[in-house]
Design a protein around this nucleic acid. Structure first.
Lengths: 158, 158
DNA sequence: CCAAATCATCAGTGTGACTGACGATCAGTC
DNA sequence: GACTGATCGTCAGTCACACTGATGATTTGG
């Protein structure tokens, strides 16, 4: 399809499914950040906290795994530590490393944040039926699966 | 559902449809920027160019319509003008305003960019069937329709 | 024991958009 | 016609944010 009238140019750009998906992604991120805000967390903080909870050994390992820059990871963990959600401890087995362990407070906030995200997700998906949600999930999964290790794509650092 | 084991925490976060949608949006944006790059355009340049083509009168009107900051719009149009894609002219009816008109070169690049985005979209949607694509489009549309004028959401400035 | 590699960190840099101000112009009022 | 307030485009300064490159501490392998 080609551009027929000048006034259609905008509609043609904005109407693309790709553009809508970009828009939807931004809205979803904004909603998640909004839901996390009462806990003083951003999406990246949560990502870092989750990585710590999943037992990734070193900070650089967490950075590599998530695509977050290693120096940014330091700052994120600084925040989380200041708030008492994680604790850094030298790895006795390799004293270059810091073991990042989630405190009880960190676990509690992770739990609460998880529920907040559940509510956000419910709001995001709106009145979509169960089968619609499954279908959507499958299609998104399918697209991401094919594209994820496409050359030249930046890592998704959340 | 609650977190059962630490190792599941990451999967639970990353497996959410909301998170996947954020990821897909970022991938889609990166692909679009990649497709536009040969023409020296970014998504925002294209958005500005499209706004100019659709006949929005003033620069500030374009900014307001798109959510792009007014000073950023100046810079975008500076770029586009330097490349000869648009031309600024005082509005004779209101000499405060600049009429932004798309040059023939601008129209040509808009046309080529549109085709590039078509190809990107084909790659993004992959092997989804026609009915899947329609279903996806309807669902995305439905979600965006409900969420778009939700309070507190930032404008989508592309 | 030494060289190279790895880890966490930090200071400096750079990019990108926003804030606030400016001169120019217009619309409405007296 | 002069005055006031609003709007337009622009620019300089600022701010947030993440990245580059370097550093000291530590480990690993020869």
């Amino acid at each position: 399809m080609s551009i027929t009238s000048p006034a259609d140019a905008e509609a043609e750009l904005l109407g693309r499914t790709g553009f809508r998906l970009v828009e939807l992604g931004k809205v979803a991120l904004a909603m998640a950040d909004g839901a996390l805000e009462p806990y003083g967390l951003t999406g990246r903080h949560l990502r870092a906290l989750t990585l710590a909870a999943s037992g990734v050994p070193s900070q650089q390992g967490m950075a590599a795994r998530s695509g977050i820059d290693r120096t940014t990871m330091v700052a994120l963990l600084d925040d989380l530590e200041r708030r008492g959600f994680v604790r850094r401890r030298r790895d006795p087995a390799d004293r270059r490393r810091h073991l990042v362990e989630v405190t009880d407070e960190g676990k509690a906030v992770l739990h609460k944040a998880s529920h907040a995200l559940d509510r956000t997700e419910a709001e995001l998906l709106g009145e979509l039926s169960g089968s619609d949600r499954r279908h959507l999930g499958r299609m998104v999964e399918h697209m991401l699966g094919r594209l994820r290790d496409r050359p030249g794509l930046p890592p998704i650092d959340c």
